[in-house]
Deep mutational scan, measured.
Amino acid sequence: KLETFPLDVLVNTAAEDLPRGVDPSRKENHLSDEDFKAVFGMTRSAFANLPLWKQQNLKKEKGLF
């Protein structure tokens, strides 16, 4: 399991300012399950079932792209 970080560490943070080991294209993977659901309004599995373009739009909207 990946290390999780608080939302404010990941949202609207440039790649070079992210904690070590965080993939800038997969910031959402480093949210706790609770934060993930609070941000996206759905579970990880529901998010994973969305088309890629919709996932990317949601990530942009939430500052996690």
Score class of each variant (00 low, 15 high):
T43W: 04
N49W: 07
K27Y: 04
P6E: 06
A14N: 13
F36Q: 00
N29W: 13
A46C: 11
F65L: 15
E61T: 09
E28R: 01
T4L: 11
G41V: 04
L18F: 07
V11G: 03
D8I: 09
K27F: 05
P24L: 07
G63K: 06
A15F: 10
M42A: 00
G21W: 07
V11E: 05
L50W: 02
P6R: 02
T4S: 08
R20C: 15
E28F: 04
L50M: 09
L7Q: 04
K37W: 15
F36A: 00
L52D: 11
T13H: 07
R26W: 08
G63M: 05
L31S: 01
A48E: 11
Q55N: 00
K62D: 01
L50C: 03
F5S: 03
A46W: 06
K62M: 08
V9A: 09
D8V: 10
D33M: 05
E28K: 01
H30N: 07
V22C: 05
N12V: 07
D35Y: 01
E34G: 08
K37H: 15
E28M: 03
E3Q: 13
E61P: 01
S32L: 04
L58Y: 05
P6Q: 05
P6M: 03
R20A: 15
E28V: 04
L18I: 05
T43I: 08
M42Q: 02
E61S: 11
T43F: 06
P19T: 02
K59D: 00
K60P: 00
L50Y: 04
E28D: 03
L52R: 10
E34H: 10
E34A: 13
T4G: 04
L31H: 01
G41S: 08
K54D: 11
P19Q: 03
L10C: 04
L18A: 04
E3D: 11
N29C: 12
S25C: 15
L2G: 10
V39P: 00
D8W: 15
L52Y: 13
S25F: 15
V39I: 09
L58C: 05
L7H: 04
N49S: 14
R26Y: 11
N49P: 01
L2A: 13
P6T: 07
F65M: 14
T13C: 12
L10V: 02
G21D: 07
P51N: 04
N49V: 12
F65S: 15
R26K: 11
D33P: 07
K62E: 03
F40S: 00
R44A: 04
K1G: 13
